[in-house]
Design a protein around this nucleic acid. Structure first.
Lengths: 233, 233, 233, 233
DNA sequence: TATGAATGAGAGTTCATTCAT
DNA sequence: GATGAATGAACTCTCATTCAT
């Protein structure tokens, strides 16, 4: 038995075994849980691992969350609330033409959500939606719907100002939404598994997408949107 | 690995349905497994359920697949191989302007992959990529890369014929890919959990996306792609 | 590693690891569970121990009983059903004066219930009644009530034939019941913990009780049942 | 074993209630523990619940009792000592015929023990005897034996005075004891779970039992105690 | 003295895997 | 080949006990 086990440690290496930080704990646990749920999925994540990553024992986790499922719900709630409104507010005061609004929209989204760990929640929801239908609906209600509403307002502004062409607003929202979603999903699942010589820069991806959203691929947009096919099978 | 030795080679598609009940077993198991893996994820799927859905006993499953993990890999392999080449071939012989090619591309993809259960494999891969990195790489190698190569050829064709504007081809592929991917992911996860009064028609979604991919939102595509922002924060 | 582990055992000592006896298992488990529940109580009994005593693994127990609580209920049900009717039937055909009926009643009860492991169920019910109120009610319905009804019939017979004195039948049943119950409870709890030089013979206990039930302590039963107390505190 | 040092000796009953809040703690804990142990059994009772019912924190409980098991032992000790001597003394000075003594004995027992929470200790001991053999022996030594000794003295008095018939004193004690015990056990376990339309009055139960103990069921006690059975199976 | 956050061994339960039939 | 009873490692969750405050 080393003789200094009971003394004050010489270095501040060994952290105190039992630190009492009731306020900090839930947050640390939620963060750890978000990481692991995103990485491995709900079922494949062990609560021991969540606790360990948060630096506490398994028992402590259950002190704050009555079950693994409630932990999951808390993770989703925690990471949803606030994020969207933050984004929303940043856009309210913007002045300029609607193309600029849209560009700015992407930029703010990327900074505040897309590039942060919060984007993992989207991957999580897509993975677990079927196992947690109520949470999935909650997510749609609190995130997808408001997000599409915001996009819809921007598109409408563009149409009203004669900047954007007429379109079905309902489906138009997905034009803006889909590339965002895809990027978040990609970055949180297959992206990290990319082949070694692959290079992928989210900023470049975003720039390309925005450019296309605004102008499309065609040199001249003019003549009829989708011309009838010729003689193909 | 007994299961590879006992069932028909992957390239010998469309084996005769008649008589040979035994030969059909692995296929039924793979189909059942695909359904359940897509729906609940790998970890949350019980092999009992897979076997039950395939109408066999749990023991029989292990006769064909040495472990749950191997079953997973087989599911991915089975649903990847062939599907893509099928799609690829359909496009090779196409004649017409490149907008039409792209439109046709979407149409074929939707018919042969997007609208079928094969789309579930995409959701599965996104959900489980981090847990099965080798499979994720395999999927990228066998699906994502060829798919993007195909799209790249189409885009290049458009550029060469003066139909499409110049662009970075590497990121340009995602313009076409992202909306497809998003649709497959959505349909296999949150889509079915949509709020009751929500209506969502994949065909309308595709039409809107293709329209935008080709022409963008802006009325006049002309001048500078992304004009500099004015005086905003 | 002993060299004959993989051979046919020379003696039939080592039982086969995995014997398939679907029919026998539940019974063996119920028996083991009864023993342990009676001995240690519901909460203090571990399912591992039940399984071990039944000679199977923990997993096997859950193959037959979905939970520890259901196992408990099954134990009670199993040991209640039939026992009482058996006893009941044995008395139906009895001929003789009612004192003899009562004596015979005690004798049959002792042989078929009191002296058997079934008596443990009474101790179990008394211990766990508050934790399993539904089962306790079930037990009262199925055991206590019929038992008292049987006793009531006997008492009534005695009264009608002028053999027994008039009494309140409702409470009269407890005259017969209480000594039986006490014996079962005693034998299954404190009895085995008796002090070393203590001797206690159930048969002698029963004989003494029956004798008192029939004749009481007093030499002459005649003069007034409970005379008023004199000048005591 | 800190708890013995910090609370009042067991013989110093009825400590002054005033002022000393701290001194009252162990008593409150023991009372709460008795309630819960009786109600749920030792294993199913959580120390948190005991502490909560006593209005203190879990940590405080362990300040007075080094473990749950020691708490249990203390509960038994506390509720055994004194009660019996109290009862015993009340009977010593009694004057009258022995039937009256016995009746008075039941009355005092009921008032001081049977109808009080102290009766719960009997249920507790019967439930947990096998799990705490030493305590069970202690209980027998301190309660059962003295109790039977008291009863034996009464019976002997009756026999000596020619009031009671001759009998085996050892087993005779159970004639008086069993109905008491049964009542305490019943009231603390199945009684509260009785079917709704059931009515059960302890006082009536006691009256009936005492009447029978003294006089028996038979109209004429006269001839041979248990006549030989006739021609029955 | 009193607290209650923290612990971790241990409980019930699940489920991929095995194997006698 | 096919079965499903049996297994046991691994999981979630509980709770008696500890200890910094």
């Amino acid at each position: 038995m080393p003789h200094n086990t009971s003394h004050t440690p010489l270095t501040n290496e060994a952290a105190p075994k039992r630190s009492r930080r009731k306020e900090a704990r839930p947050g640390e646990l939620l963060e750890a849980a978000l990481d692991l749920f995103v990485e491995k999925g709900f079922a494949a994540t062990r609560v021991d691992d969540v606790a360990a990553r948060a630096g506490v024992s398994k028992g402590t986790l259950f002190l704050y969350f009555p079950s693994k499922e409630e932990l999951f719900k808390a993770v989703v709630r925690e990471n949803i609330v606030g994020r969207f409104t933050e984004w929303n507010n940043a856009l309210e005061s913007f002045v300029g033409n609607t193309s600029e609004v849209l560009t700015y929209c992407y930029q703010v989204w990327w900074e505040r959500i897309g590039a942060t760990k919060a984007s993992g929640i989207t991957k999580l929801m897509f993975s677990e939606a079927q196992n947690f239908p109520e949470i999935a609906q909650f997510y749609q209600q609190e995130v997808i719907l408001p997000c599409r509403a915001l996009i819809r307002r921007i598109l409408q502004r563009g149409m009203e100002r004669g900047e954007f062409r007429q379109m079905d607003l309902e489906y138009g929202t997905y034009i803006v939404l889909a590339p965002m979603m895809f990027l978040m999903l990609w970055n949180n699942s297959m992206g990290p598994c990319s082949l070694p010589d692959e290079v992928f820069t989210p900023e470049q991806y975003i720039r390309t997408q925005i450019d296309n959203i605004l102008h499309g691929l065609c040199v001249r947009p003019a003549a009829g949107a989708t011309p009838p096919p010729s003689q193909n099978p």
